[in-house]
Nucleic acid binder design. Sequence first.
DNA 1: CCGATGCTTCGTCCGGGACCGTAGTGTTGC
DNA 2: GCAACACTACGGTCCCGGACGAAGCATCGG
Lengths: 249, 249
Amino acid sequence: MSSNDPHVAKIAALIGDPARANILKALMDGRARTAKELAHIAGVSPQTTSGHLAKLSEGGLLGLAKQGRHRYYHLANAQVAVAIESLMALAGERPLPKHHHHTRVAGALRAARTCYDHIAGRLGVCLFDQLVARGCLLPAGQSEEDFVVTSAGRRLFAALQIDVDALARGKPGGGKRRFARACLDWSERSPHLAGSLGAALAERCFDLGWLERRRDSRAVTLTGAGAAGLARHFDLTPDQIAAAMAETH
Amino acid sequence: MSSNDPHVAKIAALIGDPARANILKALMDGRARTAKELAHIAGVSPQTTSGHLAKLSEGGLLGLAKQGRHRYYHLANAQVAVAIESLMALAGERPLPKHHHHTRVAGALRAARTCYDHIAGRLGVCLFDQLVARGCLLPAGQSEEDFVVTSAGRRLFAALQIDVDALARGKPGGGKRRFARACLDWSERSPHLAGSLGAALAERCFDLGWLERRRDSRAVTLTGAGAAGLARHFDLTPDQIAAAMAETH
DNA sequence: CCGATGCTTCGTCCGGGACCGTAGTGTTGC
DNA sequence: GCAACACTACGGTCCCGGACGAAGCATCGG
């Protein structure tokens, strides 16, 4: 019996620290979060959080996915969520109201959010797919990540008053910020448009009042004018826009 | 969020200690155990165990039922078992084989075991019920706990070569060990026969080879001769004996 | 090339808690 | 009555582990 006893105790001790419990609870909605966000939620310094996250990962409770200089942590699997939930039930906490709120936020984040300075979520993926489908963007070289804008794309962005050539030219050096690249979307596992072109598109959407930032969240709201404008410029049907923004599951 | 966060962490930390985890796992079969047993299982001293048990009880994980100078601890409710089980699943332990083994032991304990020096479990309750039903034992006074042996009972015990009068006489003093009393059975929630008469009956059963002690367990085995002998002397059918010893659930 | 940012690793401090020895309480049995 | 037993309460020691500061990698941007 002593061979597996330490395991249970070890797992439980992992959850038994207040900071780690806060981290796990914050991830109960199934979304991935960066170490910094989790540090703020847990109320401890980033260094301390890093140690906690390492322990939780080694213990098999968390999964890690690197993306650029960010590291997104998420619950390893559904079993972990079940265990946490049963502990919350023991502690007399009600998972329902909180869970409800969390899933609503999660739904909004999945629908549309900012990723650095560009648009991510289902809306971002939808726009990127449409650009590729309509031949506005073509893969550049074998990098599988960089794209070039075709003449059709140049017209589309020009209609949005975005000067593609100026962006592509960038700063004189040449090796500066990449122009149009595919950024793997977290929740959708599909690429969305990043780089200076993606940033310019997002900025234009905010300027036009098509998108509005939410308080204390990276989620963004698509306005009525935004839905109409994006549908017109990207040749999308209102149904496609609505599907992207719907907070299903 | 901070109002309920500590709760989860506190509960998990409670389970997170190796000694406490061992205690909880030992109680996973739903049976109650004394502090001393749990100390041996956990591998720490009784004093330390007492502290652990107090914390687990205060945390709502364990329930306590006093009986004489013994204190039986058991899991507070099914939610606790669910939580432990989900943690065991996370730890990669297989609840099935172990659970199987545990339930077998639990089944054997529930079927027949010793309680101090007399017979408990379903077998003990069965015998006690039969003694009362056949008019061998009658409640004595309003104590609700002490009994007297009738002439029918005197014959029954005489056939087993147990001298009821000598036992009832006891030592000269009179206020000594009680003669025939009902002892609340732990697993069955029904009384079984205790006191000097219960001890004498158990001793006779061991002498006759009707019951055999098991190694490292309070469970006892009913031999074939024992089943036949008890059925004959207590006017029970083989089916009733078999039902008591069956390891159902 | 440099600086800024996100995160991890290392080193140190320190508080909580696990453990046992001894002493105290309550129950049982002679 | 007293001794035995099961368990609890208290006091002291020790060590694990969580906290932050400073430094080290890695990535992104100019």
